[in-house]
Structures are given as C-alpha cells and as structure tokens.
C-alpha cells in the first residue's frame, strides 16, 4: 500500500473520528433536548460517512473491487437519522419537556399535544352533514 493511499485513508478516518467526537461533546454539553438533537444526528452521520468512505478506499485498494456494503450502510443511515430525530422531537414535545428560557414560539409547544392528524375529505363531509 503506497504512502498516498495511506495518507488519504488516514485523513478520512481522522475527519470521521473528529466529527463523531464533536457530536458526542455536543450531546453532553448543549442545554436542552431540542438543542441536543442537533449534535448527534448531524455530526455522527457525517462522521460515520467519513469512516465508511475510508473503509471503502481501503477495501478498493486491498481487494481490487468496489465494495457496495459501505454504500448500503451510508444510505440506510442517511434515510433513518432524520426519522429518528423527528420521532424524538415529537416525543419531547408530547411529554412537554421544558425548553431553555429564551426559546421562541413557546406557545406552539403547549398546543402540540392536542394536535390531531389531518382529516380526510369524506370525514369532513360527514361532519358537515351532522
């Protein structure tokens, strides 16, 4: 394995590890749950992307074929990370977790618990009839 390849893999690895570490520091240090959702869901996805790219380059140089497994993991994480963040934010609003004092639009938090799913057209028609 030549020096340039090792340098590329090392830079990708260090970038990924740094982002993962920054995400965890943000998870520990930020103030409330709504702010804390930012750090891991963005930074660990990007950090894991760096490590997966390094692994891809490594296997391509070592074995001579392009491995598709890393792309699968990256695709899966890119799809699932926003879904998890959305569900956790909904749970936090449903359980009325207190935000930091200078949060804007705080009155929307109180109404989040009473929100109903959007009604279908025929349901609205029957309500009008009744």
């Amino acid at each position: 394995m030549s020096f340039a390849v090792e340098l590329t893999i090392s830079i990708l690895l260090l970038l990924g590890g740094l982002f993962v570490l920054v995400g965890s520091i943000g998870l520990l240090r930020l103030k409330d749950i709504y702010v804390r959702l930012h750090a891991p869901t963005k930074a660990t996805t990007l950090g894991l992307g760096g490590i997966l790219a390094a692994s891809m380059v490594f296997l391509f140089v070592q074995r001579g074929y392009l491995s598709i497994n890393e792309l699968l993991i990256t695709l899966f994480l890119v799809i699932t990370a926003p879904v998890t963040a959305h569900i956790l934010a909904k749970v936090a609003m449903h359980l009325e977790v207190a935000p930091v004092p200078h949060t804007k639009n705080k009155h929307l938090l109180a109404t989040a618990r009473e929100q109903q799913p959007p009604q279908l057209d025929n349901e609205q028609d029957t309500e009008k009839d009744a």
């Binding site: 990924g16 590890g17 993962v20 995400g23 965890s24 998870l27 749950i33 804390r36 959702l37 891991p40 660990t44 996805t45 950090g47 894991l48 490590i51 993991i73 994480l77 998890t84 956790l88």
Partner: peptide, 12 residues
C-alpha cells in the same frame, strides 16, 4: 437519544 448515538458510534 444517547442510546441511539451509542449505536451509531459502535457501528464506527
């Protein structure tokens, strides 16, 4: 949230 992040870190 911490458990989910731990899953992602253990993948790495």
């Amino acid at each position: 949230l911490a458990l989910d992040t731990m899953y992602i870190n253990s993948i790495a």
